[in-house]
Amino acid sequence: MDGLGVMAVRINADMTQVEFAEKLRVSPALISLVESGRRTVTEELQVRIAQAFGTGPDVIQAIERARDSKKLAL
């Protein structure tokens, strides 16, 4: 998972960066840095996201839509 995937999960959950960070028990600054690509998504953060939001089809589809959208924007 990359920053775009993290953003897709957050947007799919209809949460702000602050709300998302609180749910994951991390700082909002970390979420901002990850989403902007200035920090990598650690294994620990991936586990927290999976525990909080699951890995169901809706989450996977949100990530895929975000990636497709980015490709179209290029």
Rank of each mutant, 00 (worst) to 15 (best):
V9P: 09
R48G: 07
P28E: 13
A66H: 08
M7G: 06
L33V: 05
S32F: 06
G54I: 11
E64H: 12
I49M: 13
D2F: 06
T55M: 10
M15F: 02
A8G: 05
I49N: 01
V9T: 06
P57E: 12
M15H: 03
S69N: 15
F20G: 01
I31H: 06
V26A: 03
A8L: 05
R10K: 07
A29Y: 09
P28S: 09
A52K: 14
D58A: 14
V18W: 07
G37P: 04
T40H: 08
A21G: 06
S36H: 04
V59K: 10
S27D: 07
M7S: 11
V26K: 02
R10P: 00
A50M: 11
L72C: 09
D58K: 14
V47K: 14
V6P: 04
I63F: 06
M1Q: 08
L74E: 13
V47Q: 14
R10N: 03
T55S: 12
V26D: 02
V34A: 03
P28H: 07
Q17V: 04
F53D: 09
I63S: 03
E19T: 06
F20H: 03
N12Y: 13
L4E: 10
V41E: 00
D14R: 15
V26I: 12
R67Y: 12
F20T: 00
F20R: 00
A50N: 09
A66L: 07
V18G: 02
A52S: 15
P28F: 04
K23T: 13
V6W: 01
M7E: 10
E35W: 00
L72V: 11
T42Y: 00
I11M: 10
T40K: 14
E64R: 12
F53H: 12
